[in-house]
Structure formats: structure tokens, C-alpha cells
């Protein structure tokens, strides 16, 4: 069964642009990215959209559909009513290059600011011995496909551009948590999470968790545990005293 759907697609370069109306054919089983491609093929050949795998694993086709960050390739048209007008815009937190394509280099900059995995001195690759139970907590975070929808929806930078220098965003605070929980990582992550990467800006409103296409429990399993580790380190006098008196296990 096919029908004609009404679309509003944001078109423009830089920040300037507007929502343009389209009426376009939709066929059974299609996703929003299919419709964007049909628009390219039939009505707007210069419409820019970033995409790659069409399987929800590359994280390229992040966009905002009816105001919510979604992967275009994983948003089924059958979830909308046939008479509904569907609005498609680029991610709002990042600068626009053209149409639906945004410049996500903010995220690569933040990734570079986090020191990489730091094993103890004297332990060489091949000598790590870890139980599955010790690493499975951080394995959840490695499901991340870097679609950057969590950073896009986080109001700390979405609504406050001025916070971008101080705040790494949920994706990279999760990366810090992943490393801090790693049995063989010895770098000091807790102090820097708070002081350099802005963990304190997070007010745990869980939007990052709501939009994650991999269903990673970013807030409950990464950000809040990291906040608790920072409390251990900076705000809890009993833990501080315990660490001074006893050699507490890690």
C-alpha cells in the first residue's frame, strides 16, 4: 500500500534556511531515510543528507523527526498517521553545513581531550587478565555507535552554546566512566571528569538515555555511577578519611 505523505524538511546552509513543504510517495515498509532519498531522486536533487549503513549501526543519519532526535534509517513510516505532516530538521545542537547535514566536529574535539586507556606500568598488551564480570559493565558503553544524538539532545549544550567549552556531553562522560571502571586503567578520571569535562553540569534529566538508539542506560549506568565516584573523591569526608587510614580495595 502506498500513499502520499506531507513532509516539511529544513533546507539551508549555515544557520540560514527554512522548512520547505513536500508531498512524497510512501510505500509499505519504508523508513524516513527512504523518503528523504525519494525526495532527492524526484524533487530536490541537491538535498543534503548524511547516511551510510541504513542499518542503525553507523550513526550517520541522525536528524530530528517531529522535533525528536532519531536515526532516519530506523524510524519507520508506519509509526506515523498517513495524514500527519512529518517535520525533518538537522540536529539542533551542532552547526549546519547544508540541509540535514551538521558539523559534528565538536564531538571529535571532546573525544581528543580524554586521555586514552592507560594500563599500569610494567603490564604489556597480552598480559591483561580480566574476569568477564569485571569488564561487562563497561562493555555496555562500547555499544555506542556515535550518532551523537545524546549530545544533541542534552540541554546543557543544546540550550546553552556557552557551555560547550566546559562540557563534554553524555557521550564522552560515558567514555570517561567506561575507562574509570576498567580494571586495568590507572589514569585519574574522577578529578578530571568534574573539573575538566563538566560532569557537574549534568542534572540527570535522562534525555540522553531516552534517545539512545542502542538503549544504553547512559544516565543510570555511566553518569550517575561517575557522579558517585566523584563524590567519593571530592565531597565525602568519610570516604576520604577511610582512604587515608586504610588501603581501600578498588
Amino acid at each position: 500500500m502506498s500513499y502520499k505523505a506531507k513532509f516539511k524538511v529544513w533546507r539551508g546552509e549555515g544557520g540560514e534556511g527554512k522548512l520547505e513543504d513536500f508531498t512524497v510517495e510512501v510505500n509499505e515498509g519504508e523508513v524516513v531515510l527512504d523518503i528523504i532519498h525519494r525526495l532527492q531522486a524526484t524533487q530536490a536533487p541537491d538535498l543534503a543528507v548524511r547516511w551510510n549503513c541504513k542499518a542503525g549501526k553507523c550513526g550517520s543519519c541522525s536528524m530530528e523527526i517531529n522535533g525528536k532526535p532519531r536515526l532516519g534509517c530506523m524510524t519507520r513510516m508506519s509509526t506515523f498517521a498517513e495524514d500527519e505532516t512529518i517535520t525533518v530538521t538537522p540536529m539542533r545542537t551542532f552547526p549546519v553545513i547544508k540541509d540535514l547535514v551538521t558539523d559534528v566536529s565538536f564531538n571529535y574535539q571532546k573525544a581528543r581531550e580524554i586521555p586514552s586507556f592507560t594500563p599500569p606500568q610494567g603490564v604489556r598488551p597480552g598480559e591483561y587478565r580480566m574476569q568477564q564480570v569485571d569488564v561487562e559493565r563497561s562493555q555496555e558503553f562500547r555499544k555506542c555507535i556515535e550518532c551523537f544524538m545524546c549530545n544533541n539532545i542534552c540541554h546543557v549544550i543544546r540550550d546553552h552554546e556557552e557551555n560547550k567549552p566546559a562540557f563534554a556531553g553524555p557521550r564522552f562522560l560515558m567514555r570517561i566512566a567506561e575507562l574509570d571502571m576498567h580494571p586495568y586503567d590507572v589514569a585519574d578520571r574522577q578529578e578530571s571528569a568534574q573539573e575538566e569535562h563538566g560532569l557537574g553540569y549534568c542534572n540527570i534529566t535522562k534525555c540522553c538515555t531516552e534517545v539512545c538508539p542502542e538503549h544504553i542506560k547512559i544516565t543510570d549506568n555511566a553518569l550517575i555511577p561517575m557522579k558517585e565516584r566523584v563524590v567519593d573523591r571530592k565531597y565525602d569526608p568519610l570516604v576520604w578519611l577511610g582512604n587515608k587510614i586504610f588501603r581501600r580495595p578498588k
Partner: peptide
Amino acid sequence: SDAPVRRQRAQIKVRTLRTD
């Protein structure tokens, strides 16, 4: 990549486009 226009977000004047 360093052009000033690339530093700008999409200018959309409404608080949200959510329809739910």
C-alpha cells in the same frame, strides 16, 4: 570547514517541533 557559516545552528524560532 572553517567558514563562519559552519559555526551556525539551524535557525528555528519555535521552542520545539515535537508534536506529542
